[in-house]
Amino acid sequence: MNRSLSALTRAGVLAAALSIGLAGPAVADPNIVIPIPGINPIPGINGQPRGLPRLPGVTQAVFQMTGMDSPNRTQNVNVLGTDLGIMWDDGSGRMLTAFGDSAGLGFPNLLVGSVWAWSSQVLFSSTTKDPSQGISFDGVVSNNPLPSPKIPGIEISLIPTAGISVGGVQYLSLMSVASWGEHGKWETNFSTLAVSGDGGRSWAPLTTTRRANVDGYQNFQQNAFLKDDGYVYRYGTAAGRQHPGFVSRAREADIADIDRYEYWDGTEWKPDAKVAAPIVDGVAELSVMWNEHLGKFIMLTTDSTNSVVMRSADRPEGPWSEPQVLVDGPSLPSAYAPMIFPYQTGNDLYFLLSVYNQYNVLLMRSPL
């Protein structure tokens, strides 16, 4: 008799969980990078309380996006735990969300000591424009549309860091991780773009867009996208956390032509990545968007204390304001990768936030 994925999930959860649960909860500090083998997303036995965290400030968690405690029930498509949550409009009114390294049941990645089936990317779709009651997924792309060999020292993962639609074509920016390290450090081979012409259902790598860790491109290994006035702005930082942030841009039609980008040198735009000047300091995973309520561009990232901070600017290149704390680090110490909801929501700011100690993604609301 055939059994559904949800039934298989329920049957396999205990065995998978017990194989790692005895080792105790996952490390709570995301600045100490431990890949999939170190996580336990099973609620109730991962050492974390069930339900949304209650935070002391005005920013609150309002919905769990992924995992077995999520109304989206992503375990039914074998996504028990994941991170990042990069959102963008696909050009036709649908929102695509790309998640990073995701844990599910299946053949484990024994080469790196993981008991999980491990996908480098998974994408969901949604038509939710008002996130006040949560974000509902109504479609999913098969896990690992851009496969990674997951061989330490060669490529351990190929992780999305930004997504955008240009002319109805979808683009993902990804980083090829060669090896993980500690204290917010990891090594990348390159950053690159991938493209989808069918609304995100299938993807192809654009190998001519690879930016290796040399010649100024080391500052664009992790990215964020912004569209403004006919340009695509591609913000960047080096592999890992707590590095300076930089910005490049190209005309929308030239998004996949690496030779057409120009780089902000602190005064003007230049065609050489080596002259790019920092626009902000202490950047981790980041997200940038125009906010109509403030009448400014806003940038979210985390700082050295794992606090979620927001900066604002009148122009994409800045100058950017001093950081304003939205979530204080000690109140949610394993938070990282704040990603802005792509539609305007008045005087409330909604963003996704990854929580490492339960290895899933939360929807947050912060008044502006």
Rank of each mutant, 00 (worst) to 15 (best):
G295P: 03
H243C: 11
E285Y: 05
A277M: 01
Y217C: 12
I298V: 15
V280R: 12
G236H: 04
A212N: 06
Q218G: 14
T208Q: 15
G282Y: 08
G266R: 01
P278Y: 03
Y231E: 05
G266E: 05
W264M: 01
P205T: 10
Q222R: 13
A250E: 07
W269Q: 00
Y263R: 04
L206V: 13
R234N: 14
R211H: 13
G282D: 15
R260D: 05
V280N: 07
K296D: 11
R260A: 15
T237L: 12
A273C: 09
Q218I: 08
P244L: 05
L206Q: 11
Y217Q: 11
V232I: 15
V280Q: 07
P205L: 12
R234M: 15
I258D: 00
I258H: 02
V280P: 03
G240T: 06
A276E: 01
S202V: 10
G295V: 05
M289H: 13
A194E: 03
L294F: 07
E262C: 05
A276Q: 06
L286K: 14
T209S: 15
Y233K: 02
L226E: 09
L286A: 10
W290T: 00
S196G: 10
V195C: 02
Y217I: 03
T207Y: 09
T237N: 10
I258R: 13
A273V: 07
H243Q: 13
G295M: 06
D198P: 14
S196H: 06
N213R: 14
N291H: 13
R210F: 02
R210Q: 15
P244G: 02
R234V: 04
F297E: 04
K274Q: 08
G295K: 03
N213E: 15
D198V: 08
W269A: 02
Y231A: 04
F225D: 02
S248H: 10
T207K: 09
F246R: 09
A204C: 03
A273W: 00
S202P: 08
A276P: 05
G295R: 00
G230L: 12
D198S: 09
V288M: 11
D272H: 05
N223C: 12
W269S: 01
A273R: 03
Y217G: 09
D265L: 06
G197P: 08
D215A: 15
Q221F: 00
A224L: 02
D259R: 12
D259M: 01
K270P: 00
D272C: 00
R210V: 04
G282E: 13
G266Y: 01
G245P: 01
V214A: 13
V288K: 00
F246W: 14
A276I: 04
T207C: 01
R251M: 12
N291E: 12
E252V: 06
D281V: 08
P271S: 01
G216K: 10
G282T: 08
W264R: 04
G200W: 10
Q242P: 00
F220V: 07
P278L: 10
R211L: 12
D257H: 06
V283F: 03
G230D: 08
Y261T: 05
R201N: 15
R249P: 02
N223R: 10
Q242E: 12
I279H: 02
P271A: 07
D198K: 05
G230W: 01
G236W: 01
R260L: 04
D259W: 03
G197K: 13
N219R: 12
P205A: 13
A204H: 11
D265H: 05
F220G: 07
